[in-house]
């Protein structure tokens, strides 16, 4: 398995866990009787973002160090697969903008706007990494 594919798997798992952790925290508080509007969501959200990002950064640093030793970094196939993943991630982010703007225009609570941004970011990372894994497993579209 290529190092970049490993990073994609780390991205899928850590982003999935981070998003699940945030939903779990909010649900626990809701069950505890704290309404969504009264919840202090910023710190839990930042903590969950850290849960999502730290493993990805660690994996990238680890593979970067390994490749430096081996003088064997990403090649043209890795870069092409990464480009497909970036395109997918960008499209998900763009698609997230429409509901976000609608929520802002309609005066939705800050919590829901922040949650939608968080969900959009997490989903875009998962979809992008999923496309990359698909590229490594099933192949890349031809010339």
């Amino acid at each position: 398995m290529a190092d970049e594919e490993r990073i994609s798997w780390v991205t899928v798992v850590s982003c999935g866990l981070g998003m699940l952790a945030f939903v779990g925290l909010v649900l626990m508080r809701l069950i505890g009787g704290t309404a969504v509007a009264e919840q202090n969501y910023s710190m839990p959200m930042i903590a969950c973002m850290a849960v999502m990002m730290v493993p990805i950064l660690a994996a990238k640093i680890w593979t970067g160090t390994r490749n430096q030793d081996k003088e064997d970094g990403p090649d043209e196939r890795d870069r092409e697969i990464a480009r497909h993943g970036d395109q997918a991630r960008y499209q998900v982010l763009l698609a997230t903008c429409v509901p976000l703007l609608s929520m802002a225009f309609s005066g939705a609570e800050h919590f829901w706007i922040a949650a939608a941004v968080f969900a959009g970011l997490g989903t875009s990372f998962i979809v992008g990494a999923g496309v990359q894994i698909g590229g490594y497993r099933r192949g890349v579209p031809a010339w």
């Binding site: 398995m1 290529a2 064997d72 090649d75 043209e76 196939r77 890795d78 099933r138 192949g139 890349v140 031809a142 010339w143």
Partner: peptide
Amino acid sequence: VGVTRQTIIAIEQGKYSPSLET
């Protein structure tokens, strides 16, 4: 040729079309 072993495997299996230069 400056690519990884995995890329050669993918080319051999028809899962990746290399650049013209490669």
